[in-house]
C-alpha cells in the first residue's frame, strides 16, 4: 500500500512541469552558484570595503559609492560609456541587419561575402588596433590621404578629444558588423518563405516586405542582438585599452577601463568593485527596459 503510494507520488512528480524545469536548469544553476554567485558576492562585499587586493579588506560601508558620485572622473567616464553605447548599438544592429538581409537573398557569392564580412571579428583587437591606428593617422593615414585627394576635411581622428570617440565608435561598428549579421542570419532562417511568397502575390515591394514581415518576425532575434550588444558596449575595454588608452585627455576613457586601472594599477579593488556594481545596476536596468519594451510591442 505504502509502496504503491510512493510510486504514484514519484510518477506525479515526473509529470510536473516545474520538476522538469528545475531539472533542465540544474547544470546551469550549479555552475552559476560556483563560478558566478561566489565571486560576485565577494566583489559586492569588496565594494563596501577599502581593499587593495592584498591586505585584509576594511569595511567602510557606502563610502566608496559616496565618493564615486562625487568623482568627476567617474561621472565623465560614465558619460563617455553612454555615448559609446548609444552610437554603437543601434547603428551597429541596423547595419548588421541590412547585411544579413542582403546576404540571405539568392545573391551569387553570398557565402563568400558572409565570410569576408565576418573576418574582422576573428582578428584579434591587437592586430585591429594596429591597423586602425595607421588608418586614422592624421598625417600619413589612409583615410586622411583619401579625404585629402578628394579635397575634403581631414579630421585629426585619434589626436583630438572631439574626434577620438567617433573614431573608436566607427572601428567598433566595423569590427562587430559580421558578428551581429550572423545572429540575424540565423534568425532569418526561421521566417517561412511562404510569408514572402504571399506578400509577392499581394504585390509588396522589398521595403514593405522588410518592414512588414522581416522586422516583426525577427523580434526575438533583434531583442537578443540589442541586449547582448548593449551589455558588450557598456563593458567595452579591449579597443580602448589598445587603441587610445582612454586618451587623448580622457576623451575615450570608459568605465571598464577605469575599473581596470583602479583594480590593477592603483591597488583599489574596493573602489573598482563599487564602480562595477553601479555599472551592473545600469546595464541590468537597461536590459529590463528593453525586455519591457519588447513585450509591450508584442501585445
Amino acid at each position: 500500500m505504502k509502496n504503491k503510494n510512493s510510486i504514484e507520488v514519484r510518477q506525479s512528480i515526473l509529470q510536473k512541469e516545474w520538476f522538469w524545469g528545475y531539472t533542465f536548469l540544474l547544470p546551469a544553476i550549479i555552475g552559476f552558484l560556483i563560478f558566478t554567485l561566489i565571486p560576485v558576492s565577494m566583489s559586492l562585499y569588496y565594494s563596501l570595503t577599502e581593499y587593495d587586493g592584498i591586505t585584509k579588506p576594511i569595511f567602510v560601508g557606502l563610502d566608496n559609492y559616496k565618493s564615486l558620485f562625487k568623482d568627476k572622473e567617474f561621472l565623465m567616464t560614465l558619460k563617455n560609456t553612454f555615448i559609446f553605447t548609444i552610437w554603437t548599438v543601434p547603428v551597429g544592429a541596423f547595419l548588421s541587419l541590412i547585411c544579413a538581409q542582403l546576404l540571405n537573398s539568392k545573391i551569387r557569392g553570398k557565402k563568400l561575402y558572409r565570410s569576408i564580412i565576418f573576418i574582422p571579428n576573428i582578428v584579434s583587437y591587437v592586430a585591429v588596433a594596429m591597423v586602425w591606428q595607421w588608418l586614422y593617422n592624421e598625417d600619413y593615414g589612409l583615410i586622411n590621404t583619401l579625404l585629402g585627394n578628394l579635397g575634403l576635411y581631414q579630421p585629426p581622428w585619434l589626436t583630438s578629444a572631439k574626434w577620438a570617440m567617433p573614431s573608436v565608435i566607427i572601428m567598433t561598428i566595423w569590427k562587430n558588423l559580421g558578428y551581429n549579421m550572423i545572429i540575424f542570419l540565423a534568425g532569418l532562417q526561421g521566417i517561412p518563405n511562404s510569408y514572402y511568397e504571399a506578400a509577392d502575390i499581394d504585390g509588396a515591394n522589398s521595403f514593405q516586405k522588410f518592414f512588414r514581415i522581416t522586422i516583426p518576425l525577427l523580434r526575438n532575434t533583434t531583442l537578443f542582438v540589442l541586449v547582448t550588444s548593449m551589455i558588450g558596449a557598456f563593458q567595452t575595454f579591449d579597443q580602448i585599452y589598445l587603441l587610445t588608452a582612454g586618451g587623448p585627455n580622457r576623451a575615450t576613457q570608459v568605465v571598464v577601463y577605469l575599473i581596470y586601472m583602479n583594480a590593477f594599477q592603483y591597488f583599489k579593488q574596493g573602489y573598482a568593485s563599487a564602480m562595477s556594481c553601479i555599472l551592473f545596476a545600469i546595464i541590468f536596468a537597461a536590459t529590463l527596459l528593453q525586455f519591457r519594451l519588447n513585450r509591450d510591442n508584442n501585445s
Binding site: 533542465f24 563593458q235 575595454f237 564602480m275 551592473f280
Partner: peptide, 27 residues
C-alpha cells in the same frame, strides 16, 4: 517550461554577463 521564478532566474543568469571580468578575476 512553466514554473515558479523562471523569469527571475533567467534575468539573474543573464546578469552574469553584465559583470566585467576584471572585477571578479581575483575571487
Amino acid at each position: 517550461l512553466e514554473f515558479k521564478g523562471r523569469d527571475a532566474m533567467f534575468f539573474i543568469y543573464l546578469g552574469t554577463m553584465m559583470i566585467p571580468f576584471q572585477v571578479v578575476m581575483i575571487p
